[in-house]
Design a protein around this nucleic acid. Sequence first.
DNA 1: CCCATTTGACCACG
DNA 2: CGTGGTCAAATGGG
Length: 310
Amino acid sequence: MTKLISHQIHQSFSNMKMKEETLMEEKRVIKELEQGKELVNRLMNNLKNPSSKESNMRLISGILRSYENSIVMMSLDQKTLKRSPETKRMDPSNNKKRRTSDKKTSKKVKVCVGREQEGTSQLDDGFCWRKYGQKDIHGSKNPRGYYRCTHRFTRGCLAVKQVQKSDADPSCYEVKYLEGHTCNGNLLSTTKHSVSLFKEEERNIVPKLHHVTEQPEDISKHMKSEELMLSLDDLENKKEIFRTFSFSNPETENTTGWKNLMENFSPTTTSESGITNELISASVANSPTDDSCFSSLKNILDLSYDWSLM
DNA sequence: CCCATTTGACCACG
DNA sequence: CGTGGTCAAATGGG
């Protein structure tokens, strides 16, 4: 009897602890978003008074960082709620090269990244990937590409992904992320302090700013590609997240806000499709260290663009 | 010349 | 033995 009671007490105590942690997490997200909002305001001011000395690029970097951190926090939050207890595998001591067995601990993530970018069939998720193989997969029309992090050897980053064009919809790619980034490859140095709140491997598994659904391994194995496409529900979900992110001015709810913003930086961009690419090259020219930031920006724009199509 | 991609060989696993 | 994942030599672009 007393055992039962003490067990219950213990239980509710740990429940409280969990709630407390979730609250903390929420507070962090809110704080992050408030910072982002503040930066947006400053950027708006800058655009009104071009005389200001503050660097627009820096502000945008900050805004993006704030978004990214918030998204990561939120997706992590959802994950930890859903996650089943990880099966801990002992490493096969005689494994020479293959890492197949310990890869089972990694998470499979399905990403659908809208339309194929003109010219590039390469999907940009903000990380630097190097292709190391391609394989025809029996039963699929399209081959599967195998990519690893560019910094595998320089920084010992073990991140790996597989990309396969969808049979059902050739404009769509199925991307599977295995292993997380440990390289911090594309993050600005300023982001380090805030994102280091999370376990590296978890933080990086989520490809930044893409729609992501996590598929249980056994299901995704047997699903047809069209079934792997994201559910509208999920899209709606992420959309909602982004709405929360959008500025208080309702006019900026959709992509026009971003577009207007962008045109201030790159007056030459006229066609819709040209915006992202030109912007990226421009930013590279201005400040090479910022290109990673803009590849993320590109993701945001891609996303917005996708949504507007739906 | 350096670096990334391509592609067939190789290997592990079921 | 078939299949999927990785290696590494060959290739090609900048």
